[in-house]
Design a protein around this nucleic acid. Sequence first.
DNA 1: CGAAAGGAAAGAATCGTTTAGGTTCTTTCC
DNA 2: GGAAAGAACCTAAACGATTCTTTCCTTTCG
Lengths: 344, 344
Amino acid sequence: MTVTIKDVAKRANVAPSTVSRVIADSPRISEKTKKKVREAMKELGYHPNFIARSLANKSTQVIGLIMPSSADKAFQNPFFPEVIRGISKAVHDRQYALQLSTGETEAEIYEGVVHMVQGKRVDGVILLYSRANDKIMAYLQKEDVPFVVIGKPHKKAEQITHVDNDNVRAAREATEYLIELGHERIAFVGGNVNLIVTMDRLRGYEKALKSASLSYRKDYIVHEEFLKEGGQEAMKGLLSLKEPPTALVVADDLMALGVLNTLAEMGLSVPADLSIVSFNNVLLSEISRPPLTSVDINIFQLGFEAARNLIQQIENPNEPIKRIIIPHTLVKRFSCDYYKAPSE
Amino acid sequence: MTVTIKDVAKRANVAPSTVSRVIADSPRISEKTKKKVREAMKELGYHPNFIARSLANKSTQVIGLIMPSSADKAFQNPFFPEVIRGISKAVHDRQYALQLSTGETEAEIYEGVVHMVQGKRVDGVILLYSRANDKIMAYLQKEDVPFVVIGKPHKKAEQITHVDNDNVRAAREATEYLIELGHERIAFVGGNVNLIVTMDRLRGYEKALKSASLSYRKDYIVHEEFLKEGGQEAMKGLLSLKEPPTALVVADDLMALGVLNTLAEMGLSVPADLSIVSFNNVLLSEISRPPLTSVDINIFQLGFEAARNLIQQIENPNEPIKRIIIPHTLVKRFSCDYYKAPSE
DNA sequence: CGAAAGGAAAGAATCGTTTAGGTTCTTTCC
DNA sequence: GGAAAGAACCTAAACGATTCTTTCCTTTCG
């Protein structure tokens, strides 16, 4: 049926091994023979079988992508398309392919990862999230699979190659920006508490408060899985405090959109009544109302570097462990304003 | 290094072929032997090598997913995560894996598809979009690769298995809803003109106008790749007509969000000044302001059915060509209101 | 009691490449 | 002129499964 290396060999009057070497463009084959073989390939419409090659090679040229559980709303976050775009760019250049984890629950995903790794379907793996006590990461480490994490590993970060922003710093700067605008009552609206990114951003927020000698108040910290039942309640609780905040640091743009919505419903306007700064700077932040001041974390770069480094690690097993920090920048739009004392 | 079927065979004192049959749970092997072999597998920590199996089998249990070019803004559309979630669900249940197309430009993607197909990396393919004169689709047809299209093929739709909504009908109903509310000047804001879904929704819109004997005006049709330069201009042009529309049918929620933003900037309020109905009913439509009245097209189902049918097609080559229509429903929220004559 | 039948497992070929190790033939150089 | 060297290919054994064919035992029954 399909035309194999043997057919080409026959046609060109050489041995299969010669054809193989022509494909690899080995210097051990003369130009004349190469030409002859290549013609035969053209004539027969030959295409190498990747599976067979993988078997002989013990390398698949495939990278596994592990997403958070799709049962999670997080899946809808525009972060993922964008990070995948970066990864895609890097792997395409190097002739690798991408395989996606499937499964809804964490258990299903774990099982899926074990399958793709043990089944030797992939040469390495990128974890698209980082959370505390992740079984999957533990597994990858134990099995010594080449992998890189996007985000900062919870523990032993120095032993795991990862690509991340300096989220502590980013959050600190974002908060300081609000402080510079005169705000003193600044609240933090975080996402999933188990994600390291949430923890880091919270720490940055705290640091900024501390070095400005502003008080850190527990009732100013809200963790909402936005859009869940209770998300709106949390926001309303926050704003009905005796001393409500005048500014918000929100964990990401999608959440900020939800917050914006809740505020509008409550009759509060941004930035007149409340300033908001958020993170990620996805498309959404431009088309929200008002356009969001947001920390651009270079999502594309995160993906690109993760993939590039994973491939290095795959192709050179002695590659050292690396920690790559992608720069961020605060993009100012229209969701922040100077603090104005209420005119009573 | 890795433990193979032979190691297991040796350990269990049987032939490799027997081990293989135990894996496949063949009835030709006695229960006693099965138990013995399974124990050996446990003890050695054996995991079947998928690549080897694929080679022998001529089947990879992998499905290729072809996304639109990621250079495109379309990539950011929440449609994709959701449709992938549906696909993921269906393939996970049947032990298939997913491989993603990579590449930014159309040419790169085309090349990538050829690679994954000819390289026998995948058993079949799902096209996540449908546009006019698509080279990739033509290629898949020519090569007789099992594939299904999400959306309606441009030509010869009856010869290609596809999963789609009845977009003509959906758009017609959406438009009729506006008409019922008393609107007579209804404009259409479409997306990429080459996408079949855009064409279908435009046709549905036209039909609704026609059967209500409303005039179809060319200057009421705007195709904007929203957020591109000129997107806002198009909207502004539309609204500065002598007889501006009082309602808008917008091709999808993300675009509607952009439109909402432009309108707000112009000082127009929705739904007081202008009603909007859009499509897809993604998460966004709930958290936009106002929450959007949107046609729910069951994105998850689209993906799920596409995958399910592709697998059927792969496993049974005589499976007939199918056209699967996923139902839609209009979800009413707060972006539409009755037409009120301007009080002059 | 011996041949036939049938169940259970072994043997060996195959899938399409890669690659280590040979073989053949030409060239070089003392 | 003949040994040594080197270029250019070829042979054949992997890679880790699957599966067709064969063999070896039991069991059954005339």
